[in-house]
């Protein structure tokens, strides 16, 4: 009896998922929960948090003009441009890479993937020089010497230019995990499917893509979509890095995470920063829901 009961417990499925569950709770669920709880408090990292109800949220929606006028608009615009375009680019690059021979493919994959890991350093070295606001900047050099512009354009200090540049730079660095997942997915597709389709009257590459490739890698595509949504919404600090520290001119390219960082780690208003991140979480969930609708199994 006793032994059987023990064995029964040992065989319990809960025990099997226990290690994962423990780590998940510790590393992911707890911080999120803590952030949610903190968002209802006023907390300066030193004193004990004081519960203040919805005040943080009310302040965000009524008093925080920077958040409402710049951060939200910028984040959404940034995400809806960089997310889908980066996603499509990732798919087509992965598909094209799948067509080249193995050795070359590996080299190409490393080249394409590398911007997403070397982002910050490369940005300082490459993009800031390209868009530099004096004649030494490549684009200004071309504009002045080839097209006869009278004066260099202050690309990185002008609110009108900074945001598009930020988008270009992000697209350049967006071939990350999602891209690798799709590449792996495409390489995993059974060749015989294509052969069978060819026999059945497949006419061209477009049909291959639409009728075989995409349906076969749907899970990877969903993963990639989620990654790109989270990635774009989590982006931060790009505008500052390009414009050279501090707050970018006229809050151009000021994203929600920048706002949270500003309140959390500059002003140490952790409660308020948590509230901002909770709002971001809700937005991300919303967009993820749309992604599931589009790419999920039901579709």
């Amino acid at each position: 009896m006793y032994e059987k009961g023990w064995k029964k417990h040992l065989q319990s499925p809960y025990l099997f998922i226990a290690p994962y569950a423990l780590l998940f709770v510790l590393i992911i669920a707890t911080p999120v929960l803590v952030a949610m709880v903190l968002s209802f408090t006023s907390f300066n990292t030193i004193e004990t948090p004081v519960f203040i109800g919805l005040k943080n949220y009310v302040d965000i929606f009524t008093g925080d003009t920077v958040f409402l006028q710049h951060a939200v608009s910028n984040t959404i615009l940034f995400s809806v441009i960089v997310g889908p375009i980066g996603y499509m680019m990732a798919f087509f690059l992965a598909w094209m890479l799948a067509q080249v021979p193995h050795r070359a493919r590996t080299i190409y994959a490393v080249i394409i993937y590398s911007p997403s890991i070397t982002g910050a350093i490369m940005m300082a070295n490459v993009w800031r020089i390209i868009f530099s606001g004096d004649e030494a900047g490549y684009i200004n050099y071309i504009l002045i010497n080839w097209f006869g512009a009278d004066s260099p354009v202050q690309f990185l200090q002008d609110a009108d230019y900074l945001f598009p540049i930020m988008i270009i730079v992000s697209l350049w660095g967006s071939m990350g995990l999602g891209f690798l997942a799709m590449l792996a997915g495409i390489l995993n597709i059974d060749r015989s499917l294509y052969e069978a389709a060819a026999i059945d009257g497949m006419k061209n590459r477009w049909q291959e893509i639409f009728y075989i490739t995409i349906p076969s890698i749907k899970p990877q595509m969903l993963f990639s979509a989620v990654m790109s949504i989270i990635g774009t919404f989590n982006a931060a600090g790009l505008a500052q890095a390009l414009a050279g520290g501090g707050v970018p001119p006229q809050y151009a390219g000021w994203l929600i995470v920048d706002h949270a960082n500003d309140f959390g780690f500059t002003r140490f208003e952790m409660g308020y920063a948590s509230a901002v991140t909770v709002i971001l979480l809700i937005i991300v969930l919303l967009f993820n829901k749309i992604a599931y609708r589009l790419f999920g199994e039901r579709g």
């Binding site: 939200v72 608009s73 615009l77 809806v80």
Partner: peptide
């Protein structure tokens, strides 16, 4: 105008 994204982006899409 500050929230024009909510109007223009869905429309463009």
């Amino acid at each position: 105008y500050q929230e024009a994204v909510f109007y223009s982006v869905p429309l463009a899409f």
